[in-house]
Design a protein around this nucleic acid. Structure first.
Length: 501
RNA sequence: CGGGGCGUGGCUCAGUCCGGUAGAGCGCGUGGUUUGGGACCAUGAGAUCGGAGGUUCGAAUCCUCUCGCCCCGACCA
């Protein structure tokens, strides 16, 4: 391949719409061009890199016993309706209707497709375990595409789905993927941090994310160097502090607090620590009001909360609902005296002594509030987010935070799709059993961007050898006619090199 | 969807406030000179100023609508 015959449109200046480093470098090096927001074209040199990465992915997936397929990108709505996700996926899924009025989705993920495929081709436990994968384009109507190829509406993903006879089989399939993923990212020359993750609305139990540490990462990780506890903030647990053996329990007292609504206001007004307050937040969970009570300095972790209450939809309540639940305008909510709403407390609340909280009455707060005496804790759970400095749940050392880009994610899915779509096989006794699933994704083009993000200097991209677009660049430096004659040996050298590559 | 910003040759931008019919640098073509670490000189091509409507003798510039793009937020396998 000659550079002179190649198309390699480099740019000297940063394109005005590229902000992050990988996006800029990928544009300037002529790897990609934008077609429109969240959609990118890969030029020959960019495609070469992409192919190098997919090559590694394939080798490792095959080595782990998975088999490659290729599924339609336009998927029949019927399957989504079977699994129930036609309703639950929401506007993120791009839906289209053909001329006959049939509905389709541009596949944002392929659990349904693979489950449907597998149920049509296997019928015996002897066909299991089975792990099928594809490398294909995915479509998601992202609210806001960002960072070039890192968060785009159309992207390339390797997605694999395992089917096993039982939990032990799933564990084995999952572990095989966990190992394969480590090898894949390692071979791509990028350092990843595997973390425990929330499995979100994919359903399922265990889940591990492969993160590339980066300032522009959209996820926050909590890490402990002492014991290697690693989790993303949606999932991260932390140990609550010791009970403070504070002085005497105070009387419950109403305090006039005009216009003091936020924790910030309260800190100024009462001149004490944020954690002296009980923060009460009103949500609407699947249509029903819900009060959530956490220490003043803490944020409600909506992922944890959603999992705990088993809700599909969770939104902050509007002023009207707040008023209905608490009998007071926004800013004066508290757990004392609430009768008609479900209340979930963070597990740290029970240890609080003489707290201050909203009185459920306009312009009043209560001080000297104590659990049990002043309100019952019927339901409590870990529903707040861990943050830097919090105590590691495993070893008790303080944790720290890092931002990360998610490049891979593996889940134990469970029976959600096999049950909903009625995938069964016969076991050795001839009885019908439902296989259990796992699912395993790698953002291929995101991995490419992450590699660039992680390997560069002021002069540009420094490709890890395994995914570099080219291995050798032969430069002829002939000037004079006689020297030009030497081009021939260069050609020969090129042929020789080709043989060894 | 809320807030902010931007659309002018291939790229980066000036001109817009104070209407008079388009400019620079880079890149690109051609000719020449040069040449051992991203050359220089000359010359040239290339823009109905995102689109539509309006005001005006006259609109890149003013007004209305519209499309696209970027940033922050909400949100997000």
């Amino acid at each position: 391949m000659r550079v002179s015959k190649y198309i390699l449109p480099t740019l000297k200046e940063n394109p005005s719409d590229a902000v992050v480093l990988s996006h800029r470098l990928m544009m300037r090096a002529g790897l990609i061009r934008k077609e429109s927001a969240g959609m990118y074209a890969y030029l020959p040199i960019g495609l070469r890199v992409l192919r190098k990465i997919t090559g590694i992915v394939k080798e490792e997936m095959d080595r782990a016993g998975a088999h490659e397929c290729l599924m339609p990108e336009m998927t029949n709505a019927d399957y989504w309706k079977e699994s129930g996700r036609w309703e639950t996926m929401g506007p993120e899924m791009i839906r289209i209707t053909d001329r006959n009025g049939l509905e389709y989705s541009l596949g944002p993920t392929h659990e349904e497709s693979f489950t449907n495929l597998v149920r049509s081709v296997i019928s015996s436990y002897r066909d299991l375990p089975l792990n099928l994968y594809q490398i294909n384009t995915k479509f998601r109507d992202e609210i806001r595409p960002r960072f070039g190829v890192i968060r785009s509406k159309e992207f390339i993903m390797k997605d694999a789905y395992s089917f096993d006879i039982d939990q032990a089989g799933l564990d084995a399939s999952y572990n095989a993927m966990s190992m394969a993923y480590r090898r894949i990212f390692d071979r791509c020359g990028i350092a990843t941090i595997p973390v425990q993750a929330d499995s979100g609305n994919m359903g399922g139990s265990a889940s591990e994310e492969f993160m590339v540490a980066s300032e522009i990462g959209e996820e926050t990780l909590l890490l402990c160097d002492k014991c290697e506890y690693r989790a993303n903030s949606e999932k991260a647990e932390y140990t609550r502090g010791e009970v403070k053996s504070e002085s005497a329990v105070e009387e419950l007292k109403e305090v006039l607090t005009p216009d003091v609504k936020t924790i910030e206001d309260l800190v100024k007004f009462f001149k004490c620590d944020e954690d002296k307050f009980l923060k009460s937040v009103i949500y609407v969970a699947d249509g029903k009001p819900l009060m959530v009570v956490v220490p003043g300095s803490r944020e409600v972790n909506e992922h944890k909360l959603k999992n705990f209450i088993g809700a599909l939809e969770l939104d902050l309540a509007n002023d009207e609902v707040v008023e209905k639940v608490t009998g007071a305008p926004f800013g004066f909510a508290g757990p004392v005296g609430i009768k008609d709403a479900r209340i979930v407390f963070d597990i740290s609340v029970k240890n609080m002594v003489n707290a201050i909280t909203g009185a459920n009455k306009k312009d009043y707060h209560l001080s000297g509030v104590n659990p049990v005496r002043d309100f019952n804790i019927k339901e409590e759970a870990d529903i707040t987010s861990a943050r830097a400095g919090d105590i590691c749940p495993k070893c008790g050392s303080p944790m720290y935070e890092k931002k990360g880009i998610e490049v891979g994610h593996i889940f134990k899915l469970g029976y959600k799709y096999t049950k909903a779509m009625n995938l069964t096989v016969l076991d050795e006794k001839g009885a019908s059993i439902t296989p259990i699933m796992g699912c395993y994704g790698i953002g291929v083009n995101r991995t490419m961007a992450a590699a660039v993000e992680q390997n560069n200097d002021e002069r540009g991209i420094i490709w890890p050898k395994s995914i570099a677009p080219f291995q050798v660049h032969l430069i002829g430096i002939a000037k004079t006619d006689e020297e030009t004659a030497a081009v021939e040996p260069a050609e020969k050298l090129l042929d020789t090199i080709k043989e060894y590559l």
